[in-house]
Simulated scan of single mutants.
Amino acid sequence: MKLLFDQNLSRKLVSRLADIFPDSSHVQFHQLAEKTDTEIWKFAKTGDFCIVTQDADFAERSRLYGSPPKVIWLRCGNAPTPEIEALMRSGVEAIQELLSNPSLHCLELY
C-alpha cells in the first residue's frame, strides 16, 4: 500500500521516504490540496493509499468507518520535515504492521 501525505505535511516527504515507501504521493500532486476530507478519503480508498496526516479528523473518520483507507496520524505537532521523516523511519515496523494487518485501521505515531 502506498502513502498519501496530507496537505499539512511537506511534499518533500515523498522523495525523502521513497526508499522505504515507494509509490507514495502527496495530495497536491493530485489536485486535492483544496478538496474536502471526504474527497481525499474517497481518492485514497480507490487509489489504495494510506493517508498520513496530522489532522485528527482522518483518525476519527477511521474509527467511524474502518478501512480502507488506513490512516497514520502523526501526533508530533508542528514539527520540521526532518523530524517527521525521522518519526516515520523510526515507526516503519509499526507502519508495516498497520498496512499488512486487516484488523488495524489507524496508527498514532508520537
Rank of each mutant, 00 (worst) to 15 (best):
M1W: 07
M1G: 14
K2C: 10
L4N: 06
L4P: 05
L4E: 02
L4R: 06
F5S: 04
D6A: 03
D6R: 11
D6H: 09
Q7T: 11
Q7S: 11
N8L: 03
L9Y: 06
S10N: 03
R11A: 11
K12S: 14
K12T: 02
K12Y: 04
L13V: 07
V14R: 11
R16I: 03
R16G: 00
L17S: 05
L17R: 04
A18Q: 15
F21S: 02
S24R: 10
S25N: 04
S25G: 11
S25A: 12
Q28C: 11
Q28Y: 09
Q28D: 15
F29A: 14
H30W: 13
Q31T: 09
Q31R: 12
L32N: 03
K35Y: 01
T38W: 08
T38N: 08
T38D: 12
E39G: 06
E39M: 12
I40E: 02
W41S: 00
A44D: 07
K45C: 07
K45Q: 15
T46N: 14
G47K: 15
G47F: 01
D48G: 07
F49I: 04
F49R: 13
F49D: 06
C50I: 14
C50Y: 02
I51H: 02
I51L: 10
V52F: 02
Q54R: 15
Q54I: 04
A56F: 12
A59W: 06
S62W: 03
S62D: 02
R63N: 14
R63W: 13
L64S: 11
S67P: 03
P68M: 02
P69Y: 05
P69H: 05
P69M: 07
K70H: 09
K70N: 09
K70D: 01
V71W: 02
V71Q: 06
I72P: 07
I72Y: 08
I72T: 08
I72K: 08
W73I: 00
W73A: 01
L74S: 02
L74A: 11
C76K: 08
N78R: 06
A79S: 15
P80D: 08
T81G: 01
T81K: 05
T81W: 04
P82G: 05
P82F: 05
E83V: 10
E83D: 14
E83R: 14
I84T: 13
I84C: 01
E85K: 14
A86C: 01
L87N: 03
L87I: 13
R89L: 09
V92S: 13
A94I: 00
A94W: 03
I95M: 10
Q96T: 10
Q96A: 12
Q96P: 00
E97K: 15
E97T: 15
L98V: 10
L99C: 11
S100M: 03
S100N: 13
P102L: 04
L104P: 03
H105K: 11
C106G: 00
C106R: 13
L107D: 09
L107C: 09
E108V: 08
Y110E: 15
